[in-house]
Write a protein that binds this DNA or RNA. Structure first.
Lengths: 190, 190
DNA sequence: TTGACAAACTAGCAATGCTAGAATAATTAT
DNA sequence: ATAATTATTCTAGCATTGCTAGTTTGTCAA
């Protein structure tokens, strides 16, 4: 009988509607506007229904963040052009990373600032969470013995640039120079 | 008459007690536990009194953060030893910065993550906010033409390392290696 | 038709930031 | 000294939040 299949499918669709609504509201009005009540209204179910899909609000944020990690990974991979030099690839990935952070601040916030209940560096860590790191490692590896440590450091620099600029601590006008500086340092080529 | 002097003095003392209480509770139980009700209870006044000192909760966080910026600046300056080489100074400042971030996570959160209502890069920006940057600029300047941009980038790298490690995204055991890598890149000396 | 189970809803709790309006204390004017 | 005024502080409560207990509604097998 396909009844239970239909039910699980409908459940899945409802869950997606929750995540999509959360993302949409967050991108338009910020995460503070993503309340359980508002999401419930959006999907046209009562509030407790949300808790049959997610343990709590943080996990809804986490579901959106997971999407974000997948998209970031794709964007970073797409930024790596075969025709580019190794140094250009570093610069392109850095630029793509920061563009992502500034174009989708709510998504970036979900991924890196808000509590999400996501588990990193575990055996059950979803592929999306490792993928972005992999893309960065690809462009960093040619310049380093210890690619993991170098990638962590590169990633940290990008994340710091994103956060400090987002909070108005560093000058937006000099973003390109900072990227150039990092690229130069990583590649060792002026 | 010293009556009004006494009053303003007592008001100032009460304000300090609010800030101290906020900091103490945050460092022990996290910022979520720093509620207006709890602060009011701590200083033994009713809640509305807090709003005669601060516009809202964010500004209380901001007052604590301002203290933190002063302390961070002092710590960074103290980390610069005259006997050290330029390269060692970079490493020492980086280490001191991260030690600060990990030893006082609540304070660091107030300074860099939570909304505080603090204004940066303005004419009325308090000295504390500029001072830490100045300390970093001191050790970066010898290696750079454009000290400001280089310092911003250095700072971003440190901030990124602090945040990613705090959120469990990078391996804590490799902190020293990452610092060494940054130092090496900044100084250009392996 | 009935009984058992699943799904969804109503209603409400406890906690939050913040504030209007009343009450009290202190100061000034008469 | 007393009354009027001003400054301080408090009580009480609003609106909103995440979350949940308990009830109702719907579904399916016996």
């Amino acid at each position: 009988m396909g009844i239970s299949e239909r039910k699980t499918r409908e459940r899945g669709e409802r869950e997606r509607r929750i995540v999509v609504a959360a993302r949409t509201i967050a991108e338009r009005d910020g995460w503070a506007s993503v309340t359980i009540r508002r999401l419930a209204e959006e999907i046209e179910y009562s509030q407790p229904v949300l808790y049959s899909h997610f343990e709590n609000r943080d996990q809804i944020v986490g579901a959106v963040a997971l999407e974000g990690f997948g998209e970031l990974a794709a964007i970073l991979r797409a930024a790596i052009r075969p025709s580019s030099t190794s140094k250009e690839r570093v610069e392109d990935v850095a630029t793509a990373y920061l563009d992502f952070a500034f174009d989708r601040p709510a998504m970036y916030e979900a991924m890196f600032v808000l509590p999400t209940g996501l588990r990193f560096a575990r055996s059950d860590t979803p592929a999306q969470l490792r993928d972005g790191f992999g893309a960065m490692a690809t462009v960093i590896a040619p310049f380093s013995q210890d690619a993991d440590t170098a990638t962590e450091t590169f990633w940290a620099a990008l994340h710091g640039l994103a956060e400090l600029e987002r909070h108005g601590r560093i000058r937006p006008a000099f973003r390109a120079q900072r990227i150039a500086l990092i690229t130069q340092m990583v590649s060792g080529q002026p």
